[in-house]
Nucleic acid binder design. Structure first.
Lengths: 334, 334
DNA sequence: GCTGGCACTCGCTATACTTGACTGCCAACG
DNA sequence: CGTTGGCAGTCAAGTATAGCGAGTGCCAGC
């Protein structure tokens, strides 16, 4: 279907369009790329590429721009031949040592948006999938305790619990022991099924189910808040968003949080780089956006890091940057 | 300086401009507001208001729009006569019971942006200014412990600490006791000065200063992350930001975080509503923006909640909304 | 001091025209 | 048969011009 030259022409056109953001014509291509043929020939190729759905013309007398399929073919070629690795130094120098995981992610994201001029997103590891290391109940006042749950991968979840009746620290200690005995080394997500058994064992104790409920709720909340993003200004700087009306639905989508989480979670547990171009994303808001993302971390403590930008993003750069950053994150987490 | 009618004209013009976002002429004012005089008279008043710096004309044959001073006078009048209170129900119905303080703030902010069509910002109470209730060191692995600091106002700060040598839980307990003895009921900000005394008392112990350092660092970080904001799409919907180039510097400013913190912190500890109009804000990025903010909470556990929008914001609504939300927050925190 | 009226200003919109960057097609060439 | 140069055709974007209308400032009269 795509002979060598045609593929070369497509590649050149995509590169040029990525750089210029304006429809590209045959003359430009011949001038700037070594295609070894005349504009007329290129025109023939272009018209075939258009018929086969890789390119579109905004109007008859304009150059052409890639369709989603056009980008897709371009990206597949990139993946196949292995994109050039980013200078490690370039990226890692942007990632200082951060004292805390949160901070690391933040710095990482900033580095990513700088490198790619796209929006950087990080999905931190799910707490529910990690195994419980220990649970503590710290007394704050007679009527209030702080539950601290630590996972084996070192994540921390805490929750302040209001107690129905005055409760002594010793009493809390008892509950603490019961919880630890029941949940130790279990996946946090398995707490729910284990709950019934635990309640049966402590049937007289109203405090136990209360705390378990709070733990479940805290875990759910922690899992909802896993998303961090930075770089909206970088997006606004892109010509496709010069009109704020274009950007608004997207940013609403971002602030929603939960939807982006969905869009990213497909990359979870997948070692390969995920590239979603335009309408390959299920959400209509992302119709003219692409996502490049990859899993980081290992085992149950894994998350996703990636960038979101216009379909006309620099895929080569984005893929390289995302990979480097993911490697950096994985390393820092072990 | 401003006689009754002139003030009335200014007020009408500001209201009209807030609603329409286009320069307002004498005819419109006479038609829509009960000014009790003819357009010609209004024109005279307008030209005086312009000379005295309350209004500007974008060009000769256009209507007028308020200057920062114009808005200022308008707002001062609002404050003086007491703006109409917002229906409590309207606002509080937007604030469901949230199980955790974080979540409460988030929900609150969403409510605020809905109510005002502005960006909502919340500065949560400073941890450093709160008094230490207890400090716990929870052993995670032989080489790692989790420090959990709880303040009397119920805030929680935690930090995972890498330990130079293998450390038994009993050893951690000792340090824990030393820390609690030294810092109990002290303001977190006073830990730094107390540090010297503590180190003297435990001079052989290298772990103590290490943990104190981490506590200080964790507190500093917690204080940096106090800012939460939501509602960028609402801003982008405002006509002054139809061009994304207008919005970009502002959003960069927002993502910076630290600057907004600065801008808001002037409202800290002040019972009165703070209204900063246009260039009254020190930062150039806020030259065409206004901030309406007020303190919430009590004593050492206080923060700031407010909105940021174009100078052409609906001050009356914004002030009412911010007040209601702040009251709601204060109540929820006690 | 207020008002109606009139002349004037000037941004906005619509229209018409020009320009230039493309393409598609075709005939000729190797 | 693939490639090429050339030519006619298309259409967005830029430029110039004219007319409209919203709004002002000023002035004379009440």
């Amino acid at each position: 279907m795509l002979n060598e030259r045609r593929r070369r022409v497509l590649q050149a056109l995509v590169e040029e369009y990525i750089a210029s953001a304006t429809p590209v014509g045959s003359k430009t291509l011949v001038n700037r790329y070594e295609l070894g043929c005349s504009p007329a020939t290129v025109r023939n190729e272009l018209s075939i590429l258009e018929e086969t759905g890789f390119l579109v013309q905004p109007h008859v007398s304009a150059g052409r721009m890639p369709t989603d399929t056009g980008y897709r073919s371009f990206v597949d070629d990139l993946i196949e031949k292995g994109s050039p690795a980013l200078q490690g130094s370039q990226a890692t120098s942007l990632m200082h040592k951060a004292s805390e995981v949160d901070e690391l992610m933040r710095e990482t994201s900033v580095a990513l948006t700088r490198l790619t001029d796209c929006l950087a997103v990080v999905l931190s590891p799910s707490v529910s999938l990690a195994r419980v290391k220990r649970i503590d109940l710290l007394s704050m006042t007679p009527h209030r305790a702080l539950m601290v749950l630590i996972t084996e991968s070192g994540q921390v979840v805490n929750r302040s619990i209001e107690l129905a009746e005055e409760t002594a620290p010793e009493r809390l200690r008892e509950v603490e022991q019961a919880l630890n005995a029941a949940f130790d080394s279990k996946r946090a997500a398995d707490i729910r099924p284990l709950r019934v058994a635990l309640e049966a064992a402590h049937e007289r104790d109203l405090l136990v189910p209360r705390v378990v409920d709070e733990i479940l709720d805290a875990l759910a909340e922690a899992d909802r808040d896993r998303l961090y993003h930075v770089g909206i200004p970088a997006l606004l700087a892109q010509p496709e968003f010069h009109d704020a009306a274009q950007a608004r639905p997207l940013i609403e989508f971002l602030e929603d949080g939960i939807s982006v989480l969905e869009a990213l979670s497909d990359a979870l547990g997948n070692r390969e780089l995920m590239v979603r171009i335009g309408h390959e994303n299920r959400r209509a808001e992302l119709g003219n956006m692409s996502i490049v993302a990859v899993n980081y971390g290992v085992g149950s403590a894994d998350g996703v890091v990636g960038v979101i930008g216009p379909t006309r993003m620099d895929y080569s750069r984005a893929m390289a940057a995302v990979r480097v950053i993911a490697d950096g994150l994985s390393e820092a987490l072990t």
